[in-house]
Amino acid sequence: SIEEEIKKAEEAKEKGKTFIHGDFVATTEELLDELLKRLRKKL
């Protein structure tokens, strides 16, 4: 679910890890923020 993806992305951000969502690879905090923004729009 979208909620689960958001939670996983937030955890990755806290730990400074890379998060992959489909073909979107978030390797930096900026990219994770962008991904979180996109996911929240889908809610």
Rank of each mutant, 00 (worst) to 15 (best):
G22Y: 11
K41A: 13
D33W: 10
E10M: 13
T18L: 10
K7E: 07
K7C: 09
K41L: 08
K17D: 12
K7G: 06
D33R: 10
F19K: 02
F19H: 06
V25Q: 11
E10Y: 08
K41S: 07
K37A: 13
I20G: 02
L36S: 00
A9Y: 03
E11V: 06
T27R: 08
L35C: 07
K13T: 01
K7R: 15
E29V: 14
E34R: 07
T18N: 07
D23I: 14
K17C: 14
L39S: 00
K41F: 06
L35S: 00
A12W: 05
E3A: 13
A9N: 03
T28D: 05
L36N: 00
R40C: 15
L36K: 00
E14V: 10
R38Q: 14
E10N: 06
S1R: 12
T28P: 02
I2T: 05
A9T: 03
T18H: 11
K15R: 08
E10T: 09
E29Y: 11
K8S: 07
L36D: 00
V25E: 08
E10W: 07
L35Q: 00
K8N: 08
K7A: 13
F19E: 02
E5P: 04
K15I: 05
E3G: 07
R40M: 11
D33K: 08
K37W: 06
K7L: 08
T28W: 12
L32C: 00
L43T: 01
R40K: 09
L35I: 08
T27K: 09
L32Y: 10
L39W: 05
H21D: 04
F24N: 01
A26Y: 13
E29G: 12
L32G: 00
K7I: 09
L31P: 01
K13I: 06
V25N: 09
K13L: 11
K41Y: 05
I20E: 05
L31K: 04
K42C: 11
L43Q: 07
T18E: 11
E4H: 07
E3S: 07
T18G: 10
E14W: 10
E14Q: 10
E30W: 12
T27M: 11
E10H: 05
G16M: 04
E3W: 14
H21N: 03
G22E: 10
H21V: 06
G16D: 03
E10P: 01
F19A: 04
L31D: 14
K7H: 08
K41E: 14
T27Y: 14
I6P: 01
K42H: 12
T28Q: 02
E4V: 06
K8R: 13
E29W: 14
I2M: 06
E34W: 12
I2S: 04
E29L: 15
D23P: 06
K17Y: 15
E4A: 11
G16R: 04
T18K: 08
E29Q: 13
K15S: 12
L35W: 05
F24L: 07
K15F: 09
G22R: 04
K13W: 08
K37I: 12
E4L: 10
I6S: 03
E34L: 11
K8M: 12
T28G: 07
L39K: 00
R38L: 15
R38D: 10
H21F: 13
E4G: 05
R40Y: 15
A9W: 07
L39E: 01
L43D: 01
V25Y: 09
E34Q: 09
K8E: 05
I20A: 09
T27D: 15
D33V: 09
T27W: 14
L35Y: 03
K37T: 11
I20Y: 08
E29T: 13
D23N: 12
H21R: 04
I20Q: 08
